[in-house]
Structures are given as C-alpha cells and as structure tokens.
C-alpha cells in the first residue's frame, strides 16, 4: 500500500545481558500501517510487543532503525500519538475532569480554564462518564478508570492511539462494552490505532490487520493477517461469520505451535516482506511494501453454521 501513515523501518532492541553478552529482543522489524487503520499485535509475553509500542510512543528509543510517522522520523514523545496505558495511569490526586483537563491544557497551553474544562467535558461525555467529573480515580471502578484513560487520550485529538493491553485488567462484561466504545470512537473519528492484546477475539473484533509475532528473544513479525470480516461487524454475531473460525483457528494455531517453531521452519523469512495472510479471500492483496508480496491463502471454513 502506498499510503504508509506509520512505517517502522528495521528497528531493533538490544539490552546488555550478563557477562558482556547482549540480549536481542527483536531486530530488523518492519511494519507499516495506513491512516485510519486499526492494528492489533498478538504474541506471547517477552516477544517485545510493549517495547514496539513504547518505541512508537517515543517513550523508548530503538537500538537500531527508525519509525516514520506521517512522513517524519519520530524523536521522542509527541502529542500526536496518545497512549492508553494498561494500568490506566491516572493521576490519583486529580479528579476525572482534572486528569482529562491536564492533557487538554498540555496540548493547548494558552487556553483558559473554562475552555479547557469545556473541551475535557466533551470527551468525558463521549466515554459515558457524565456525572463522575469530580470523582477521584480511587472512587471509580476499573472500567471507569480505563474510560478516563481513553477520554484523556482522545481529548488531545491525536493522529494515532497506542494501546497496551488496555482492557486486560477488566472483567469480561466491562471489556466488551469498552471494546464497543473504542471501536465506535475509532470508526467515527477515523483514528489510526495500534493495540497490543492477548485476547484473540478482541483482535478479531477490533482490528483491520493483525500482526503475529513469534516468541522472543529474537522475535520476528511472522505474518500480517488481514481481517476478512466486514467493517460493520458486531460483537454479538461475530462468531456467525463464515470466516470467523478460520481466522480464529489460524491465530490460535500460530500462538500454540507456530510461534515457537516459526523461525526454525522458515529460515528464508524476509522481515521486510512479511507474508500477508488472506483468509478465504483470494485475489486481494495488501502488501506492506511496494515489492512483490508473498501470499498465503487459507480456505474459509464454515463450521456448520448458516451465516
């Protein structure tokens, strides 16, 4: 795809290990995202997902390589890239309004108090926390805290959102509601989103593209799986789609077996040309670069359900 809004180009992360050796979490990692795309990264713990996200956010610097966002190499953090933290990371001495307002006044430093408040209020309303503006984080439930985190990230109207397992600490019911909210908001605002998750169904529901990473150290981006499900998918009838199980099984198979054996089985894996997997949809390709793309096709399966 020519429209590369975000392009991660050959980044590596190495840490000095014991007795002079260096531990390579990952190296030569290439990845790109189009504007308005929702991408999820799935991989086992220790494969460097969070490091990739931190590098994208500018909180961490790669040992090698560069990240290009909207045509410019990034250096450090930016108000264009908002982060939703796993642990919500609200400032406990500030109220809901104070937390969102802090972000707003950081972006627009010349705004007066009333303007900041009004702007923050819009986003508090957006995530459905109207009425809780003056509560402190300790008075909120886990789901509400994460809503504040989402409101804070959205309030600075970023170009992209980075989410590090934002819903992993929540109960299933709250998680579902928040997934709906995030999907709705991202579709409405055309937000580009990069999300780390361990939840396969969450990835299938939210993502346009799913990045599969092998186990670290020395993790590689193994495949980019394109989500074949329609854009107007709903969370409740997701599993009725004829391609749902094929997609899900593909990801689960990868996580269970192939994430360990991938590097050994595919010695000719080219990290610059990661295969794009189309499930049940022949003929359509989305290449991560202009070069010729290898394709993997998996036939769709319909496990006895009439779609």
């Amino acid at each position: 795809m020519t429209n590369k809004f975000i392009s991660i180009e050959g980044i590596a992360k190495r840490y000095p290990g014991a007795s002079g050796a260096t531990t390579t979490v990952f190296e030569n990692l290439w990845l790109s995202m189009a504007r308005g795309e929702f991408c999820c990264v799935i991989g086992h713990s220790g494969c460097g997902k969070t490091t990739v996200l931190n590098i994208l956010a500018g909180l961490d610097a790669p040992s090698e390589g560069a990240v290009i966002v909207d045509g410019q190499a990034i250096s450090g953090t930016s108000l264009d890239r908002a982060v939703i933290f796993q642990s919500h990371a609200l400032l406990p001495w500030r109220t809901v309004l104070g937390n969102v307002g802090y972000a707003v006044s950081s972006k627009w430093r010349k705004w007066d108090r009333a303007k900041v408040k009004a702007h923050a209020q819009t986003f508090i309303d957006l995530v459905g926390l109207t009425g809780s503006e003056h509560k402190r984080p300790s008075e909120l439930s886990g789901g509400m805290k994460q809503r504040v985190g989402i409101a804070r990230a959205l309030s600075i109207t970023p170009k992209m959102m980075l989410m590090d397992e934002p819903f992993s600490a929540l109960d299933a019911l709250t998680r579902g509601t928040l997934q709906d909210e995030v999907r709705r908001i991202c579709l409405e605002t055309g937000q580009t989103a990069f999300m780390i998750t361990h939840d396969v169904d969450e990835a299938i529901y939210l993502a346009d593209k799913i990045f599969l990473m092998t186990n670290g150290p020395g993790a590689v981006l193994a495949e980019v799986v394109e989500n074949p499900l329609p854009r107007d998918r709903g969370r409740t009838d997701l599993h009725r789609h004829p391609l749902y199980y094929a997609l899900r099984n593909h990801i689960i198979d990868f996580l269970v077996t192939r994430s360990k054996t991938f590097t050994a089985e595919k010695p000719d894996h080219d990290p610059r040309n990661v295969p794009v997997v189309h499930i049940g949809k022949p003929g359509l390709t989305i290449a991560s670069s202009g070069e010729e793309q290898r394709q993997t096709r998996i036939p769709g399966t319909n496990p006895g359900l009439t779609a």
């Binding site: 956010a57 500018g58 909180l59 450090g76 953090t77 930016s78 108000l79 890239r81 908002a82 982060v83 933290f85 642990s87 990371a89 400032l91 802090y102 972000a103 950081s106 972006k107 600075i156």
Partner: peptide
C-alpha cells in the same frame, strides 16, 4: 514516583 505517571507527562510533552 511511578514510572507510568512520568510517562503520562512525557507523552503529553509536559
């Protein structure tokens, strides 16, 4: 001070 609070300030370019 918790790293995540510092990170919040950093991502907000404070």
């Amino acid at each position: 001070v918790r790293k995540e609070w510092i990170n919040v300030a950093r991502t907000l370019e404070v």
